[in-house]
Nucleic acid binder design. Structure first.
Lengths: 339, 339
DNA sequence: ATGAAAGCGCTAACAG
DNA sequence: CTGTTAGCGCTTTCAT
């Protein structure tokens, strides 16, 4: 059952364990002949280094945790995908952790009673407050992701949500839209994500000389396409009158598209719609979605760099960095208005 | 930097390591007083058991790998989500592995040069042949998932694709559809998944006294909504005339919906459309998708049971099991045809 | 450049 | 019910 060990290889090759270990880890100072001989023994035995033993000896796990609410949410699925791929560039592997989007889930994650499983963690919280996160001095370094008001003491990477919201709203204004609504924030307890996006939306309107009207905002019971569809349906019934909608995320945009379709409102002719996250979905809806496109690759890579600096011992003040984003323009909100 | 060890706790509590270990692992035969005393020492020191050391000592990793093409594909994202949650019931954690849907990716996975990382693997291959998989005697037990023609020697869990395809096609026939097409299989090298679904589709037609016409099938360049949309667009231009479409999966169904919308063909009035996988998406498309709904929970749970039996030493012939499915009926293909 | 031996932190016989 | 001790398989000084 159990595979061959380093010892077995050493005996077979007639050398010490140390030498075999050197070969396995590509230690430079090994003679070619020696290397060849050891390699043959390795192949013959089908030897595979035991990672667990290596970890115990080195104290380095080679794993980072990537934690967020739910991997079945498209944005997180794509983040997970990017993380799995990119982590390899750092010789790391990813351990996914879901918090189920609950406070308890997030607390359990931070408090998790097992040590030594990962060297560090990338964590996108949605419920815990900055101060609670900061206070919990975890065993391992953590880099925060997303639109939280991150504690000053911790590293944090996000895209500039206010700027992005301003840009996408300006895009709508530039294409001639005037009655621009916002859809998808929480009915109660506005999340920081929604807050920042609404601020940018309002700033763009103000810059163009318009005043944001609270009645142009449609909140949703949950961050979910179906709930968004019913909220928009109801708003329309109550006379909500818009010629463009900035949605909090792609899922909200899908729900909005649906509600508009049902009422026979044409997109983009009658109403333009924008999403957020530029998930793969946004290319296949009908019409396809103009969406804020975060550079997830850059975001993850930078977060990983910060994290590994902490793993390596950096213990200074928190770094707060901005990852790039762009506006992906598609059919639901083209640059030039068509009628 | 390094946290307290079992030894430290033992000294502080004035007992042996064994006793502390017993308390930590909830070993039943420990006096309440002892337990209390040890627990206090644990709390005071903030002791966390080192999982890596435990693994090395026990030889059990507590991890299973769940491997498939790409977690950003909705079905796999949902499988990953279910796996993360359900694995806890077995005291296991999940390590996600992506193969990028390539033969090399799948081979690398099976051959992965590190041992001891996981106790077993759940693997949904899409490129490797059954015989190649069977020949590669891996270090760890593997249970196969999905529509592959699994080798007799290996465990395998899937839903009955032929039956499901038959049912959903029959559903369309029952609602009065007569010219039923199939969309989304590969243009070359038909996958086993497509093959089984097409067989069921044809069986249902035959049972109703219709002959399947190869011209009713529309292949797509890749398993992707955008490619499906263009394939369907082209088919329509070439006179493809259907009143219902069975799609290979939800993504193909989204692409089909899109192409039909563009041509002004109403769904479901003119053409009914069905998906496959019942991903969260299917509830939010417009119209929402009637779709084959695999019981992913049951599928995963059964696969996990089989895997753990192998981990525990079972070494018999392969078990081939069927997980339940149902047809989730939504707007795109209602039970009664409306005009 | 290679060998010998001492851990890494925990578990599990085996005693007591 | 609790203590002692020998591993688990690898890395890593420290010699040589």
């Amino acid at each position: 059952m159990r595979g061959p060990r380093l010892q077995d290889v050493a005996e077979r090759a007639g050398v010490s364990m140390k030498t075999v270990s050197n070969v396995v880890r590509d230690y430079p100072h090994v003679s070619a002949a020696m290397r060849e001989r050891v390699q043959r023994a390795i192949d013959e035995l089908g030897y595979r280094p035991n990672v667990v033993a290596r970890r115990l000896a080195t104290g380095r796990t080679g794993f980072v945790a990537v934690a967020f609410a739910d991997v079945a949410i498209p944005y997180f699925a794509e983040l997970a995908h990017v993380a799995s791929r990119r982590a390899q560039d750092f010789d790391y592997r990813v351990l996914l952790e879901e918090t189920d989007d609950t406070l308890e889930g997030e607390r359990a994650l931070i408090a998790s009673s097992e040590a030594g499983l990962v060297d560090g963690m990338l964590f996108q919280p949605s419920k815990m407050s900055a101060s609670e996160i900061a206070q919990h001095r975890s065993q391992i370094p953590i880099v925060l992701l997303g639109e939280i008001p991150a504690p000053l003491t911790m590293d944090h990477v996000m895209i500039d949500n206010v700027a992005a919201a301003r840009e996408i709203t300006t895009h709508l204004l530039d294409s001639g839209r005037r009655r621009i609504g916002f859809v998808g924030h929480e009915t109660t307890a506005l999340s920081e994500t929604s807050r920042q996006r609404i601020i940018g939306y309002q700033e763009a309107l103000a810059a163009a000389g318009f005043r944001a009207d609270p009645r142009m905002l449609v909140a949703t019971a949950s961050i979910d396409a179906a709930d968004t569809a019913s909220a928009v349906r109801q708003a329309l019934d109550e006379g909500w009158d818009v010629d463009a909608v900035v949605c909090r995320d792609d899922l909200a945009a899908m729900g909005t598209l649906r509600a508009l379709h049902e009422r026979g409102i044409r997109v983009p002719e009658d109403v333009a719609v924008t999403g957020w996250d530029d998930t793969r979905l946004s290319a296949v809806t009908f019409p396809s979605l103009t969406s804020v496109s975060p550079d997830v690759d850059a975001l993850f890579t930078r977060a990983m760099e910060l994290l590994l600096e902490r793993v390596a011992g950096y213990d200074g003040v928190g770094r707060h960095e901005i990852a790039p984003h762009r506006i992906a323009i598609r059919e639901s909100a083209p640059s030039v208005r068509t009628t």
